[in-house]
C-alpha cells in the first residue's frame, strides 16, 4: 500500500523541504540505515526522519537532517510497530529525486 505525505518543517533540509511530497510504502522488505521513514511518535506525532541505527531486534533510532531538528535523544528508540511507511521517493518543489 502506498501513501503520499506532504512535508511540514525544515528539519530534513537539504534532503526535503517544507511543501515537498514523499511517496511511501506501508509494506516493505526491510529497513536499513539511511532510509527515510514516516512514523508515529508518542510525543511529537507523525514525523519523517532518517534511520541512524537499527538494533538486532529491529528497534530504530532516527535522526533529523540538520541540527535544528529534534535530536535522536529527544525522539528516543522506536519500536517497529511505530513505523508507518518507508519513503520510496520524493517530489520536490524544484526537483524529483529517488531516495
Amino acid at each position: 500500500m502506498i501513501g503520499i505525505f506532504k512535508i511540514h518543517g525544515e528539519s530534513m533540509h537539504p534532503a526535503l523541504s517544507s511543501g515537498d511530497f514523499v511517496v511511501a510504502a506501508r509494506f516493505y522488505r526491510q529497513l536499513a540505515m539511511g532510509d527515510l521513514i514516516v512514523f508515529q511518535h508518542p510525543v511529537y506525532g507523525r514525523l519523517i526522519k532518517r534511520i541512524k541505527q537499527l538494533d538486532p531486534v529491529g528497534n530504530i533510532l532516527v535522526q533529523s537532517e540538520n541540527k535544528q531538528g529534534l535530536s535522536s535523544e529527544q525522539m528516543g528508540w522506536l519500536e517497529p510497530n511505530q513505523i508507518y511507511a518507508k519513503v520510496l521517493f520524493s517530489s520536490r518543489k524544484k526537483q524529483f529525486s529517488l531516495l
Binding site: L16, Y44, S64
Partner: peptide
C-alpha cells in the same frame, strides 16, 4: 501532486525544526 493535495489534502509528515 500539488493539485491532488489541494483537492484531497494529503496527510502531513512533520519535520519539526523545534520541539512542538
Amino acid at each position: 501532486l500539488q493539485s491532488l493535495d489541494k483537492r484531497y489534502s494529503f496527510p502531513q509528515a512533520e519535520a519539526h525544526c523545534d520541539v512542538p
